[in-house]
Design a protein around this nucleic acid. Structure first.
Lengths: 110, 110
DNA sequence: ATTATATGAAACCTTATGGTTTCCTGTCAA
DNA sequence: TTGACAGGAAACCATAAGGTTTCATATAAT
């Protein structure tokens, strides 16, 4: 019983603003105000996004004086990569792709 | 002006049921009723999920008699892979990871 | 023809989501 | 010690999301 992410990574990443935030933080860590200056929405809204990103372990916080520096925790994104990897057979393996197509040829019953 | 996906792939994939559906369809194409037999929710609910998956180009439909066979359209998932690839620098490249850490060392100002 | 099967559409309900504004607290600077 | 700045919490709001049930339609089977 550690960490216990309250939010799903998939869900966290579903919002375009949050994806942008992640890209921003990939460049360098920064406090809320600096992040929000890049968006048309309020600082409070960004703050909420950051909370969701924190709860899904996608970012972490470093408190420095009165500011809180948010930084990317990239490892968590591996969860997406892992999920995606299941589907890799369909992209880069022509043989298994073909196999798949043939095996499914015209049947929905079993 | 072609396709014009009404739904974001990220958003489509955010729902766990829809992810499960995709895995199911990866094995073989199948009609709504067969899919819904795998889930505790109503067939209608599954139908709605399938519509979202269709609108985001993740599945396509084959009408055969009175049934509609849904099948995975795996290429669309590449969009996720592409997005993720931006963050690959943080996973498999120790050098750039280190570089990143050093460059961000303790500054939020610029 | 009649009945059964496969599926989507509609209307409806509840809760989540993304925003806003307003207020409170902690920290730095004068 | 009094402002100014950084940031979260609360209350609130509108709309989206995920379900359900009920109804309608197309196709298959008898």
């Amino acid at each position: 019983m550690s960490a216990a992410p309250k939010h799903d990574v998939f869900q966290a990443v579903a919002d375009p603003t949050r994806r942008q935030i992640l890209k921003l933080l990939a460049e360098k860590q920064m406090p809320v105000t600096m992040i929000s200056s890049q968006f048309p929405i309020s600082r409070t809204a960004i703050s909420k996004h950051l909370r969701i990103l924190s709860e899904s372990q996608l970012v972490s916080v470093d408190k420095v004086g009165r500011e809180k520096r948010y930084k990317l925790h990239p490892e968590t994104l591996l969860e997406l990569k892992d999920w995606l990897s299941y589907f890799e057979q369909f992209w880069d393996n022509k043989i298994s792709m073909l196999k798949h197509l043939v095996e499914n040829e015209g049947t929905s019953d079993k």
